[in-house]
Amino acid sequence: MSLKAEHINYIYSAGTAYEIAALRDINFEIPDGQFLGLIGHTGSGKSTLVQHLNGLIKATGGQLYFNGEDIYREGYSMRELRSQVGLVFQYPEHQLFEVDVLSDVCFGPLNQGMSKEAAKERARAALRMVGLGEEYESRSPFELSGGQKRRVAIAGVLAMEPQVLILDEPTAGLDPRGRDEILDQLAALHREKKITVILVSHSMEDVARYVERIIVMNQGKILYDGEPREVFRHYEELEQVGLAAPQVTYIMHALKASGLDVDENATTIREARETILQAFRKE
């Protein structure tokens, strides 16, 4: 039970002079229930990669397995795959179109062939998951605030009850409050529903706080794959490819270099606080 990529390649405009390799030899396996961060700067191939995972883009080479089944074999239902692997695009509020919030969230379940009643049931549950109460159901999605719109859009994918939820930069353009609310809800969702969550982001700080594993993409290839503290150990190399480790990582390394006995692999404020205090207490 997992998502598994084997030697995935994707080449734009193959066979022409404009040939660009967007993805090159991508290999990974994501077990069920993992909270994963996919990091890379704009153009690193991360958005292209996630569109492979629900079959919106077909690889020009390599295999993709979902729950052990080759999704490129003949007769494999891409629609079925898309309802199992939910993908929330960047600025998902741009896809809202219905007259009220509840109908919009029903769109996915109805496409899955559910009855109106069952779809509403699902939609209500999904709205609660993103923290929107009954009072929002009959409101027009277009008169909500930016953060609320985005949560409605996320609920639109959640209502399909996917096993894997992928979010492409879910916090782009939100203020700190909106960002924290969405990330906290995702973390809760991951905890309670035990679904796999893949968070595509370029913010190291966000990712470090929530995920258990990070895949770093650069120029269409996987650069690092591991636990956050392990990945951030390469903060100098990350910087070279235009990414930065969390501020905390820099502070910790600088402290260590100045002779303080701290754990330089701390990545969050809490970890940093503990290890610094410990270093001072030892005296």
Binding site: E205, V248, I251, I269, R273
Partner: peptide, 19 residues
């Protein structure tokens, strides 16, 4: 509900802890 730069936040937390 505004953010604080991480360095500021860490300094604040350390100060709260007695440094």
């Amino acid at each position: 509900r505004l953010d604080v730069p991480q360095a500021t936040l860490l300094a604040y937390e350390l100060k709260q802890a007695g440094l």
